[in-house]
């Protein structure tokens, strides 16, 4: 249990480390921002140091760096195809940022910035706006044919077009909420079961302790999976915007 005592939600509390106030806007440097910076630094360190002495036959660290690169590259190639190449830097950064955020969150006493909807929703909206702009730039006004389902008679258009628009607008919501909800639920559950270990004592605490161990494994899986899902959906959206079907 962190400083929050028995409250399983205390781990998500935002603390101001360096208060900064500009006019009416509070842009304090918080623990969330600190962990984001930490994630960025650790990603850079991981990639730079593991590729510094790159050899033809890769060592352990170089293998890991190449594996993560290839994983995202293949994902993008399989979903978008060759036109997706120029979006690789963005998709790769996104994947690594979310993955490291989730994984750093698995370290006890750390802070999981991806468990805040402000963070995940901001990323989702950035993806959504970017993809919409790509679609508009590539196809112009033809982009709006996206909302007219083919093979549907004109009589049904007034019904179908609002549904399609809602469906399109729900993308950033589902993208952001999914990551936030999974991480928050998982971490809260971990804390609740860890609380049982303490309150049930030495004998009774064995069962919840075993549960916490199993849950930790599951959470690591979810941490990876959520980064993967966010990335592959981004790839799908980019594909939609480029190809329009």
């Amino acid at each position: 249990m962190a400083k929050g005592g028995n409250n399983p939600l205390a781990q998500f509390e935002i603390k101001e480390l360096v208060p900064i106030q500009i006019g009416d806007i509070n842009i304090a440097f918080t623990n969330s921002a600190a962990f984001m910076l930490f994630a960025v630094f650790s990603i850079s360190a991981f990639l730079i140091f593991s590729m510094r002495r790159s050899t033809l036959v890769p060592g352990r660290w170089q293998s890991m760096a190449e594996l993560s690169y290839e994983f995202v590259a293949n994902l993008l190639r399989e979903t978008v195809g060759n036109e997706g190449r120029k979006y690789f830097p963005f998709v790769f950064s996104l994947f690594m940022f979310i993955l490291f955020g989730n994984m750093i969150g698995m370290i006890p006493y750390s802070f999981t910035f991806t468990s805040h909807i402000a963070v995940t929703f901001a990323m989702a909206v950035a993806v959504f706006l970017g993809v919409t702009f790509i679609g508009l730039a590539k196809h112009g006004l033809h982009f709006f044919s996206f909302f007219v389902p083919p093979g549907v008679s004109v009589v049904l258009w007034p019904l179908m077009i609002p549904i399609e628009i809602i469906s399109y607008l729900s993308r950033p919501v589902s993208l952001g909420v999914r990551l936030f909800a999974n991480l928050t639920a998982g971490h809260t559950m971990l804390k609740v079961f860890a609380g049982f270990v303490v309150s049930l004592g030495v004998l009774g605490g064995i069962l919840p302790l075993a549960f916490v161990v199993a849950l930790t494994g599951l959470e690591v899986l979810i941490a990876f999976l959520q980064a993967y899902v966010f990335t592959i959906l981004t790839c799908f959206y980019i594909n939609d915007a480029i190809h329009l079907h």
Binding site: E78, N239, H245
Partner: peptide
């Protein structure tokens, strides 16, 4: 159908992340 908007069946296989095993 993937996550596309509108009833567009996916015709080209490269489109589908689920049917193909992800390498």
């Amino acid at each position: 159908f993937g996550n596309t908007i509108g009833f567009h069946p996916i015709t080209d296989s490269k489109d589908n992340g689920y049917k193909k095993p992800l390498k």
